[in-house]
Amino acid sequence: MKPAAFEYVRPDNLQGALAALRDHPDGKVLAGGQSLIPLMNFRLSRPQALVDISHLTELTGISVVDGAVEVGALVRHQQLHEHEEVRRLLPVLSEAAGEVGHWAIRNRGTLGGSLTHADPAAELPAAAVALRATVVLANADGQREVPAESFFLGFLTTDIQPDEILVAVRFPVPPADVRYGFAEFARRPGDFALAGAFVEMGGDASGSITWFGVSGGPERRELDFPDDAQARKAAFAELAAEFDTGEDAVYRRKLAVTVAEQAYQKAREGRR
């Protein structure tokens, strides 16, 4: 299990990275490498070139701008988990970041990497959808912004173009009366989730639920949460019935209901 050879490009700054990516159409961006390098070690991924952005400090910031928390692409999961402002303004994002893999993985894995890899069982793509985040993409010619919900296109597939780098994710700070809850289930803590859910609840019973791990990508559904537990679970079950869950379909759909209910209860407890 050793990676195949590749051309290695180490740009000095983002502009250099974008130029290099344009010049290497078969190249891939290397950030934390926690998803890419395992695939390369298995030789399931053999990029011709790697453009290494892991050292670009301009992508490592977290700032609050215009009612949104802007998180640089290279922010590590552990940083996101521990960051004071993120904890205060987006506690559910902090919580979810703390559930990604294990400590050593969180110390190196990046937000940008997680979103562009788009593993359907990953927490952060779903968090971005649940929190109505905007993904900022750049290429050598400029930038564009894509709502997270339309960024994820399916299993390991996103809207990012070969010449683009995800540079930041903008999470709007939710209104004061909106609360969130997050829950997931994995065989062992740290494993990819078999199912997970974010629940978003407004001041009234309306809100949304974003599942992950149950199909090809994050699944967001608007709904009015019934007060009655049986009715609520039935509503979750009805939504979950649509998912193309692959193997263990019956189990995954039941699990989707369980994690949705757990996330709902946590949202009810009043977390933002």
Binding site: F185, R187, L194, D248, V250, Y251, K254
Partner: peptide, 10 residues
């Protein structure tokens, strides 16, 4: 497995 457990309960 967890899936088996839920299948029994079901």
């Amino acid at each position: 497995t967890p899936a088996q457990v839920l299948a029994w309960v079901d």
